[in-house]
């Protein structure tokens, strides 16, 4: 068995499952879109997979805080399976609504190996509205995060109304010290956004866009890497094409940094499990 199997949650208002599945496929894994109820009723067993993806969307309409009810439901029904999955050294990625769900389950930030305590939160954007825009991100080279290995910068879209990362100052210090801050919002040159809108689109403290647990195997981020699955997803692609052609180059489809992010996870599983 050499297939890396990725489980992508679906149902209850989640909505990025198709493109997240595609991203895993392009990254060399075999994706399975699985309804949350199939895990709850036991017809699908989490232990059969290597990577678990909490994707974007509006689970339960985000009516009582983004990702909150999803977290309660999963903890309530498959809390132990999730902890076993983590114990087995497998990977979890949470994107946007999935990131919100991960911090509400306590799987992130997982301080002191406690994967059930909520110690950080993702709340309403300072700008007061849902917002879709592309952001510049800097990746922390010191982070143990397996998904961002070898990355220094990335660009993805954010699409959320609740993306402001907050935590108490002591928690923030620990996250920084452990290298758990994975992605930070930046300007086009890669300098920190410094909280300045729209580079930091939501007012996140310390420009935090994504964090991991201390082992680097659980990763949550607000931007959507799966939405950069093709060169033409990038807002500047027509300009880039023109400049390349102007220099006598051919513009071709190539693997995007979005797919690279998933591939890092898939490669890690290959190295570790096969």
């Amino acid at each position: 068995m050499t297939q890396v199997k990725a489980l992508i949650l679906t149902g209850f208002g989640l909505n990025c499952d198709h493109e997240t599945a595609l991203a895993f496929e392009l990254a060399g894994a075999r994706p399975y879109r699985v309804h949350i109820n199939s895990l709850v009723d036991g017809s699908v067993n989490l232990a059969d997979f290597h990577i678990l993806a909490f994707g974007g969307g509006f689970s339960w309409g985000d009516d009582h805080g983004a990702g909150v009810i999803q977290a309660v439901k999963l903890k309530n029904h498959i809390g132990k399976d999730l902890l076993d999955f983590v114990d087995a050294g497998k990977l979890i990625i949470g994107i946007c609504n999935g990131f919100q769900a991960l911090v509400n389950t306590g799987l992130l930030p997982g301080l002191d190996k406690d994967y059930t305590r909520r110690s950080v939160a993702i709340t309403y954007n300072d700008c007061g509205n849902f917002r879709d825009q592309w952001v510049h991100l800097t990746a922390n080279p010191e982070s143990p995060c397996v998904f961002t290995r070898g990355m220094d910068m990335a660009e993805f879209p954010v699409r959320h109304g609740e993306g402001k990362f907050i935590a108490e100052p002591d928690v923030l210090s620990v996250l920084q010290a452990n290298g758990q801050v994975v992605f930070q919002y930046a300007d086009a040159t890669g300098s920190p956004a410094g909280g300045v809108f729209p580079f930091n689109p939501n007012g996140s403290l310390q420009d935090i866009a994504g964090i991991c647990d201390p082992t680097g195997k659980i990763f949550g981020l607000m931007p959507h890497p799966e939405a950069y699955n093709h060169v033409t997803n990038h807002p500047d692609w027509t300009r880039r094409k023109q400049h390349l052609q102007g220099e006598g180059h051919v513009f071709e489809t190539e693997k995007t940094i979005g797919i690279q992010l998933f591939q890092n996870g898939v490669d890690h599983i290959r190295e570790r499990f096969f």
């Binding site: 493109e19 991203a23 879709d132 879209p157 699409r159 939405a227 033409t232």
Partner: peptide
Amino acid sequence: RQYDHEVQGGS
């Protein structure tokens, strides 16, 4: 900008 114009990954 208030509308998600790239969900589903095909923008």
